[in-house]
Amino acid sequence: MNKIFITLIAVLALAVNLSCGNDDLNATTSSQTLNGLWNLTSIEGGFADVNYQFDVGEITWNFNLETNLLNVVNNNLEDIASDGLETGEYNFSIVEFDDILLLEINNDSFGSYFIQNNELIIDQNGETSGNSDGFILGFRR
C-alpha cells in the first residue's frame, strides 16, 4: 500500500511539473532584456546596400518596458540615407509571432529582433516585415 501511495505521489508530482512549462517565463525574459539603453552602432542593407557605422553614444535608443516608451537621441550630423529614428519619444510594443519577437514603433512594424551577447539586432527584412530591401540595425549596450 505504501509503495502504491509513493508511486502515485511521484506520478502526480511529475505531471504537475510537466504541465507548468516555462514558455511564458522565456518570452518575458527575452523581451525584458530589451529594456534599457542601447547604442546604435551600424545600419546595413537596404536597396542601395549601405553600410553605416556609428560611434557609441552618437545615437541611443532607451527602451522602457514599464511605460512602453522608446526615447531616441540622434546626434548624427552626417547627411546619410538612414540613421534609424529622429530624436524623440515613441510608443513601442513587442509582438511574439511563431517564436519571433517583432518590434512595433508607433503602431508600425519595425522589424524582428533578437538579443545575444549584449547585442541587439533589428532586422527589417523577411517574411514578418514583408520587405526584402529593409535595413539591419545593430546595437550594443
Rank of each mutant, 00 (worst) to 15 (best):
D24Y: 13
T29K: 15
T29N: 15
S30C: 02
S31A: 03
S31G: 03
S31Q: 13
L34Q: 06
L34M: 08
L34T: 02
N35R: 12
W38H: 04
E44H: 07
D49V: 00
Q53C: 02
F54L: 07
F54M: 03
F54G: 00
D55W: 05
V56Y: 04
G57I: 04
N62K: 00
N62H: 00
N64E: 06
N64P: 09
V72D: 03
V73D: 05
L77A: 15
E78A: 13
D79H: 11
A81G: 12
S82D: 14
D83R: 04
E86H: 10
E86S: 13
G88N: 11
E89G: 01
Y90Q: 05
N91M: 09
F92L: 06
V95Q: 15
E96Q: 10
F97M: 10
D99H: 06
I100A: 13
L101F: 15
L102E: 12
I105T: 07
I105C: 11
N106S: 12
N107G: 12
D108R: 14
F110K: 11
G111V: 05
S112F: 14
F114C: 01
F114T: 01
F114R: 05
Q116V: 00
Q116K: 06
I121T: 15
N125F: 10
N125R: 13
N125Q: 12
S129F: 06
G130H: 09
G130S: 08
N131E: 15
N131M: 13
S132N: 09
G134C: 12
I136K: 14
G138A: 06
G138D: 04
F139Y: 12
F139W: 07
R140A: 08
